[in-house]
Each structure stands twice: as structure tokens, then as C-alpha cells.
């Protein structure tokens, strides 16, 4: 797969939808293409985050540490981007990501990612949207979880 194909993949990613092809080509050109075999780790929860990954092909597993060991919380597949939170907020990785199938990725370093953000306000807005959506989703899930927890506690009280 060449840069041109990668640009085609990048264009299909909602986050990059509004960025012109030229810049996506630059992004692809300066990024490293990495293939993971099933079970290989992209990054571990708690690590320092130095890059995010655009999934070009395959499926990845998102795992979160729990008292019972790592638990799979979601699967992501092509056209998704993972690892961007740690890059954006300078926090340790919030989850572990492993390849579920053979996984083809484009590794975008922190410096590249941040410079894209400063150059393309559209991209920043996109990121905000995504993060806001995630926040909404998480809040909804949280309130649902709370009410279920309450429901569980009430009979015993």
C-alpha cells in the first residue's frame, strides 16, 4: 500500500474529513506505517503517550485494568483513531490497546498531531466534537450505572 492509498484511508476518517488531501499526504509521508500481529500490544495502560494510531485495516481490542485483570471494553476497527487522548492531554494511557486481528496502522507522533491541530482549527473542532460525544456517552452510561446501582442497593436497605 502506498502513500496514495493511505491518504484515501485517512480521508475516510471523520476526524480528517475536512483536511485537504495535500496535508493528509504530508501526514502519511511523515508517519510510520506499522503492522501488528494478533495479540501484539500497541501501548499499555499507564504508559507515557508519545503517539496515536490510525487504524488502516484490522481490529483492535481496548482493554482496561480491573481487579480481575485486564477487561476488554471495546473493539475498534478501520478508520478509527486510538491513543489520541494521552497525546492531547499529557496524561498516561487510559487503556491498553492490542491487535485483535492482523492490524495495519499509521503511527502519528505527538509532535505531528499537535502541529496539525494548531494548523487546522477544523481539526480541533472535530476533536472537540468527538471528545464531547464520548463525554456524553460516558455521562449517559454513568447515570445508567448509578441508577442500576441504586436499584441494586434499595432492596437490601
Amino acid at each position: 500500500m502506498s502513500i496514495q492509498d493511505e491518504v484515501a484511508v485517512l480521508r475516510r476518517i471523520p476526524l480528517f474529513a475536512h483536511i485537504d488531501a495535500q496535508k493528509l499526504k504530508l501526514l502519511a509521508f511523515t508517519s510510520e506505517r506499522i503492522v501488528y500481529e494478533p495479540g501484539q500490544t500497541l501501548f499499555l495502560q499507564g504508559e507515557e503517550g508519545d503517539a496515536s494510531f490510525v487504524i488502516i485495516d484490522g481490529q483492535a481490542d481496548i482493554l482496561v485494568d480491573s481487579p480481575q485483570g485486564p477487561v476488554s471494553v471495546a473493539k475498534v476497527e478501520r478508520n478509527a483513531i486510538v491513543g489520541e487522548v494521552a497525546v492531547l492531554c499529557d496524561v498516561p494511557r487510559t487503556a491498553t490497546v492490542k491487535a485483535f486481528t492482523r492490524l495495519d496502522t499509521l503511527r502519528v507522533t505527538k509532535a505531528q498531531f499537535l502541529s496539525l491541530l494548531t494548523e487546522f482549527p477544523e481539526l480541533t473542532v472535530e476533536i472537540m466534537k468527538i471528545l464531547a460525544l464520548r463525554l456524553t456517552k460516558t455521562s449517559t452510561e454513568l447515570s445508567q450505572a448509578r441508577s442500576r446501582l441504586l436499584a441494586l442497593e434499595r432492596p437490601s436497605a
Binding site: 495535500q22 504530508l26 509521508f29 511523515t30 507522533t109 509532535a111 505531528q112 502541529s115
Partner: peptide
């Protein structure tokens, strides 16, 4: 790709 980037742009590292 690079002509209109400022010389110290992080993309040059790659």
C-alpha cells in the same frame, strides 16, 4: 509536501 512549511516544523524530523 514541504515547500510551504516553516523550516523548524516538526514534520521535518521525519
Amino acid at each position: 509536501l514541504f515547500a510551504d512549511l516553516p523550516p523548524n516544523h516538526p514534520f521535518f524530523d521525519r
